[in-house]
Design a protein around this nucleic acid. Structure first.
Lengths: 341, 341
DNA sequence: GATATTCATGCACACGTGTGCATCCTTCTC
DNA sequence: GAGAAGGATGCACACGTGTGCATGAATATC
């Protein structure tokens, strides 16, 4: 139904090869006919078939993006970064969400390979290693973002959570806190471990030690889990004076719980988040958090994939594994202060 | 490079046509050979080329989704709904963001047509009418979500903002408010007009009238604009006792501003939002808002497109225009109360 | 046992695009 | 003016898949 180069050829009384060349600006075609052909193409409203081109050139100009859940505000920024770079390079994005179910994930990756995407970016979702190997067999380069066990994959981009967590902890210690709690998300894999580890490293570096009960994990990373996680700390005989949350969403839940309990922030308890999602600036009081450069991480991931493709098309040997660790910065707002005496 | 049906054919010592038929479960092929072929296909790790299939069958099994900005939390939910339905029907999604620039939008839509997506869903972005007509020429069905001038398009899904706004207004009037302000987003098109209109209709129905200065529009729908919009109302000689905000993000900015100004919510001023984004439940105090069924809207849009495709493939006449208006419900939280006497 | 019928498979073309090679025409060179 | 050189264009095949039609084999019918 749509217009093809054959239609243009007929209209312009040339062969379809000439049309193809003219539209690509080949120097083989005289300027006169080339312009005439382009004109008719415009008149007929011609748009080339990506399918045919992909089939012929083995080049789909598309990337696949696999995320865990679309409505997580964290991914919004990452996607934004990916999109920006991809669009600038003329690549389209296939996007799908695994919704935490391995079968879906399997189906999505398969669909992407069938579409012959040239690269895949996998966000924070725990792809099994043999599945990852299976993908590698198709020769599709894969870049992992903030993945668990990022180091085990050839190409990953991730945020230096250890460093970030150390900075947050140092900030609190600097304010004079000695009893600091950590509220983690047990379902988060690497990132919660890294953040916990940074926390512990910084404590040790400062010669501090805390009771076991000051480390508590909840099964999730939403406000509701923050709310329930808070009660653990409130029930302790000796409460911490500061609470480090795995992410902003947990912290937001914590703030809500503290409000309900009538505990003042930061006077009675300091609270920190992590990620710097949009809303962390609008909590009450505004949340002290760690600004993970989300958009930049997405952009870097896209650049990395595109770089791999370029190297590939130049016939270069596959790049050596590249694992890039990006750093963010501490954002001190109003939920942290020196502890009460 | 990837395995093709020819490779399977060679391996199984049959023709490629037989392979094609066997993999489709055609009754023409004997069960024995069919099973043998499927087995070799599995062994070789065969995945069909979507490009070739699309070219041959004129059927891409893909939808395009055009949104304004990826990192808007509002779209997250809509996308989620679309994705769910599309995935269940075996469709993949091409997604791109226009970032408010018409050139990008043009480029994106063109890319989608080149990819021969079977349908397009356009979210809240003001596509010009002639561009929309141009798309129609390609025979790609388009569904608009919450678009400006939704009624002008053949197929749209949108939220009944007039009704929602009336419910919000009625709630405030019921609490005893007589001086109610409306803070709009002048860049939002239809939706802000509808919400304003619902506000005014409900006032009139209750025999109330308000000064002109109680209606104020700001150029944007983020927290920052809410902050600046608030100052307009605070500077009025006689302040309203309640403020209806165009959306939750504005309301969140307003709450922050009120906190800074030391004005208590809801005792001194009631505030309402609109949309019920995730974070509206975690403001302080929790925001009274209108719950727009975002995910459902996305799902309905996807169902509508798929329905159009089905009708099309059955050779039915193109469906009559369908414009579906969905309703949400008021969510009373803690930012609204009876006005001080 | 000859013919008709059913069943299983292969041949060949099509989808829309890109490209090596051959062909034809023009112009230049001596 | 004959031949060489170069410029412009068409022919034909390829990419991977799907399908109408012909072919051949096996079975059924009388």
């Amino acid at each position: 139904m749509p217009v093809t180069i054959k239609d243009i050829a007929k209209q312009a009384r040339v062969s379809h090869s000439t049309v193809s060349r003219a539209l690509h600006g080949s120097s083989l075609i005289s300027d006169l006919t080339a312009e005439r052909i382009r004109q008719t193409a415009r008149e007929l409203g011609y748009l080339p078939s990506a399918a045919a081109r992909t089939l012929k050139t083995n080049h789909s100009q598309a990337l696949g993006v696999l995320i865990r859940k679309v409505d997580d505000p964290f991914f919004g920024d990452i996607l934004q970064g990916i999109e920006e770079v991809a669009q600038a390079s003329g690549y389209s994005l296939f996007m799908a969400a695994s919704q935490h179910t391995p079968e879906r994930e399997q189906a999505i990756l398969q669909a992407m390979v069938e579409r012959r995407v040239e690269g895949i970016i996998i966000c924070s979702t725990p792809v099994s290693l043999d599945q990852s190997r299976q993908l590698a067999r198709f020769g599709v380069p894969i870049v992992y973002i903030n993945n668990q066990a990022a180091e085990e994959y050839r190409y990953s981009i991730y945020h230096d959570d250890v460093d970030g967590s150390r900075q947050v902890t140092r900030h609190l210690i600097g304010l004079g806190h000695r009893r600091i709690g950590y509220l983690g998300n047990s379902t988060a894999g690497r990132s919660t471990l890294d953040r916990l580890s940074g926390f512990q490293q910084e404590l040790k570096a400062s010669g501090l030690s805390i009771p076991e009960t000051y480390i508590h994990q909840v099964p999730g990373g939403g406000p509701d889990e923050g709310l329930s996680g808070l009660s653990h700390f409130l029930d302790l005989p000796e409460r911490p004076t500061a609470l480090i949350c795995y992410n902003d969403m947990l912290a937001i839940g914590v703030l809500k719980g503290l409000k309900q309990a009538g505990i003042r922030v930061p006077q009675e308890l300091s609270v920190t988040g992590f990620d710097n999602i949009l809303f962390s600036a609008y909590t009450n009081p505004p949340l002290t958090t760690f600004d993970q450069p989300k958009q930049y991480i997405g952009a870097e991931a896209a650049r990395l994939v595109l770089g791999l493709l370029k190297a590939d098309s130049l016939g270069n040997a596959p790049c050596e594994p590249e694992i890039r660790r990006l750093r963010g910065k501490l954002l001190v707002r109003d939920t942290t202060a020196a502890p009460a005496l």
